[in-house]
Amino acid sequence: MTDPRTRTLGWLLAGAFLLGLLVTALHPAYRGALRAIWSGAPETSPIWRSNERYYPRIGPRGEEVRPDAR
């Protein structure tokens, strides 16, 4: 048998996932981000662009982004 606290964690995660699906479906920025991820161009996502000045040298895969490369 699984520990009740662990079961609660499982339910919470599942609930969060459903909530996340709802937000992604309804929120235009998240929809845009989803399209950008699926099209393989995360830099075009509105969420990524809102983060342009936040650690600008860190790329989508944690790689170093050189200013001339952007």
Binding site: A33, I37, I47, W48, S50, R53, Y54, I58, G59, G62
Partner: peptide, 9 residues
């Protein structure tokens, strides 16, 4: 990089 793609500023 994941946070920057999935959470707005």
């Amino acid at each position: 990089g994941v946070i920057k793609q999935t959470a707005p500023f």
